[in-house]
């Protein structure tokens, strides 16, 4: 706690800098060299606005430059810095240390993704399943006639899918999903939510195509509505809602 002099000469304790420190435990693992992961511990000072990503970069800068972490935008837009923070999937750039309310912060690579090194995981399967559900507007008339305006939508039509268009493909939902924990073939909440995003889009005509893709044993029927995907989503996408709506289409409750 710093102190500052007031104008009348008294010593008034004022919280200029609430710098505290935490023990940052970083999982270190190189699949090509190591048999198992181990933790390296660093004492890192932080302010109330310091994010976990900033603390990790502080460690890289001052203590161990070999820590592997993927990041880019630092503002929860690129979806690169997903990791387990104190056991829960979160974006490191979107998680303040002060919010964790713990003197020990443990960071590990996300579950259900292959580890490339340390905190960095491979997204190949996530992108494969994302592409599998055809994440684009499907129409026969892709070329616009000259006298037409672009595919217009009412605000109500936009509301049906805009929430699901917020997905940044960070993979936190797939990491939290209990089905993904045991089923390597499951398409996953990220891809299913994106399937709903396009099915609910009034411009799209590919509903039946997408429903056929996800209507398989390792597709939508493997979701058991645990809801963990929605709880960890940093953008408010709520994949569990989209998946149940999709299932509603397949069960005939929705048109």
């Amino acid at each position: 706690m710093a102190q500052v002099s007031s104008t009348v000469g008294e010593q008034v304790p004022t919280l200029l800098s609430a710098s505290k420190s935490i023990l940052l435990r970083i999982s270190k693992f190189n699949p090509e060299l190591d048999e198992s992961s181990k933790f390296m511990e660093f004492t890192v000072s932080y302010e109330k606005w310091t994010t976990v990503l900033e603390a990790i970069l502080d460690v890289k800068k001052h203590f161990d430059h070999s820590v592997a972490v993927r990041y880019s935008c630092r503002q929860a837009t690129c979806g690169s810095c997903g990791m387990l923070i104190n056991g829960k999937p979160r974006l490191a750039c979107f998680t303040k240390i002060s919010e964790l309310d713990s003197d020990v912060v443990t960071v590990e690579p996300m579950n259900n993704f292959p580890v490339i090194r340390d905190l960095t995981v491979g997204f190949e399967k996530l992108f494969d399943t994302h592409q599998k559900i055809k994440p684009y507007v499907i129409r026969d008339d892709t070329e616009l006639e000259s006298d037409q305006r672009e595919f217009l939508q009412s605000p109500k039509e936009v509301e049906q899918y805009i929430q699901f268009a917020n997905c940044i493909k960070c993979g936190l939902c797939n990491s939290a999903c209990p089905t993904m924990a045991t089923d390597s073939s499951f398409v996953g909440p990220q891809a299913l939510a994106q399937a709903y995003r396009y099915v609910a889009d009034s411009r799209d005509k590919g509903k039946d195509t997408r429903l056929n893709i996800i209507d398989e044993s390792h597709g939508i029927w493997r979701c058991h509505f645990a809801g963990s995907c929605s709880q960890v989503c940093p953008k408010g996408v709520d994949p569990a809602m989209g998946i149940q709506f999709l299932r509603g289409y397949l069960l005939g409750f929705r048109n």
Partner: peptide
């Protein structure tokens, strides 16, 4: 819930993003 009953309605999410399905 599997039929889409009682899981909320799609809407523009506001921070802190409480999931409507929960």
């Amino acid at each position: 819930g599997h039929g889409g009953v009682g899981v909320g309605k799609p809407a523009r999410p506001d921070y802190p993003y409480e999931p409507a399905s929960q």
